[in-house]
C-alpha cells in the first residue's frame, strides 16, 4: 500500500514532468507559476479529458498539438470583466489620465490582457478624456485564443448590466451604451475604440521589453507567479517604462518584495499604482 505522502510525491513528479514536456516541446515555461493553482488546473484538465493519469496526459501533449492547445487554455486563467475593480479605474481616470494628458504622445502596455475587457475599459477612459488619438496601446497575452477574442471586442450580453454598473462606479458620466453595438446575444465594442490598439502575442516569462512606455497595466497575472518570476517580470516592466511612467498592478499584488521597489514611488493612496522615479 502506498502512503498519502508517497502518492502526493508521485503526483508532483508527474506534474514536474508535464511542465518539462510542455516547455521542451512548445516553449511555454510554467515552472515559475504558483504550484497549488497550477496543480488544480492540471487535475481539472485530467478530469475533463479521457486521459486516465497525468502521465498519460504527457504522452498526448507530446503527440497531439490539439490536446496541448486545449490544456493551455485551461492553464491560463482568463477571467476578466469590464472596469474590474471600479475604484481602480476611477483612480486611472481622476489621477493618472490628467498626468498622461500633458504628454505629446502616449504609449500604454496591457500585459496579460486576456479577452480585452481591461483594454476596452481603458480605451473608453481615454476617449472620454479626449486624448485617445495620441495614444498607442499594446495589448498582449501569451494565449492566442483569447487574443483573437480580444480583437473581435465581443461582450456576452449577460455581462452588460454588470459592465454598465462598473462603468458608472468608475466615474463614467456618459452612457456606457454609446460604446458598444448590441446584437442578438452579444455586444460588440465600437471600432473607434480599437483603432489605436495593437494586439500581440507576448510571453512575460520569456519575451523582451517594450520601449518608452508611459503606462504599464498588468493586473491579476503576477498573482500566479512565484517570487523569482515576479521579479523578472517587474524588471521587464521597469525597463519598458520611461521615467515618470506608471505601473498599475492588481489589488492583491505587491512590488514590495521585488528588486525594483526602490525605482518606484507610490502614486495612488488606495490603488496599486506606482510611478517610476525621474
Amino acid at each position: 500500500m502506498i502512503s498519502g505522502n508517497e502518492e502526493r510525491d508521485n503526483e508532483n513528479l508527474e506534474i514536474n514532468l508535464l511542465i518539462r514536456a510542455v516547455k521542451e516541446k512548445y516553449g511555454y515555461d510554467f515552472s515559475g507559476y504558483s504550484r497549488a493553482s497550477l496543480k488544480r488546473r492540471i487535475k481539472k484538465s485530467l478530469s475533463e479529458s479521457d486521459a486516465d493519469s497525468i502521465s498519460s496526459m504527457i504522452h498526448r501533449i507530446i503527440y497531439e498539438k490539439e490536446y496541448f492547445h486545449n490544456l493551455l487554455l485551461n492553464l491560463s486563467i482568463n477571467v476578466t470583466e469590464m472596469f474590474r475593480d471600479p475604484g481602480f479605474f476611477r483612480s486611472i481616470r481622476d489621477e493618472v489620465i490628467p498626468v498622461l494628458a500633458e504628454l505629446a504622445s502616449i504609449r500604454i502596455w496591457h500585459a496579460g490582457c486576456s479577452t480585452g475587457e481591461e483594454v476596452y475599459s481603458m480605451a473608453i477612459l481615454l476617449k472620454e478624456a479626449g486624448i485617445y488619438n495620441k495614444c498607442q496601446i499594446f495589448a498582449t497575452d501569451f494565449n492566442q485564443v483569447v487574443l483573437e477574442k480580444a480583437k473581435e471586442g465581443i461582450l456576452p450580453i449577460g455581462n452588460l448590466k454588470e459592465s454598465t454598473r462598473n462603468y458608472q462606479k468608475s466615474g463614467g458620466r456618459g452612457s456606457f451604451a454609446d460604446w458598444y453595438t448590441a446584437r442578438y446575444d452579444f455586444a460588440v465594442m465600437k471600432s473607434v475604440l480599437r483603432k489605436n490598439i495593437l494586439f500581440a502575442d507576448h510571453n512575460l516569462v520569456s519575451d523582451e521589453v517594450f520601449s518608452q512606455v508611459d503606462l504599464v497595466m498588468c493586473r491579476n497575472v503576477l498573482i500566479y507567479f512565484d517570487r523569482p518570476l515576479q521579479n523578472r517580470v517587474f524588471k521587464l516592466f521597469s525597463n519598458s517604462l520611461s521615467h515618470g511612467g506608471f505601473l498599475a498592478i492588481g489589488s492583491k499584488e505587491t512590488i514590495h518584495f521585488s528588486s525594483i521597489t526602490d525605482e518606484f514611488e507610490k502614486f495612488s493612496t488606495k490603488q496599486k499604482i506606482f510611478r517610476k522615479k525621474i
Binding site: R8, S34, R35, A36, R40, R41, I77, I223, K252
Partner: peptide, 17 residues
C-alpha cells in the same frame, strides 16, 4: 479571490473561475 495553501506552507490567491 480563491485562497490556496502551497505545499511549502505559504498562501496563494487566485482569480480562477
Amino acid at each position: 479571490y480563491h485562497l490556496l495553501i502551497e505545499e511549502n506552507r505559504t498562501l496563494s490567491l487566485s482569480v480562477d473561475p
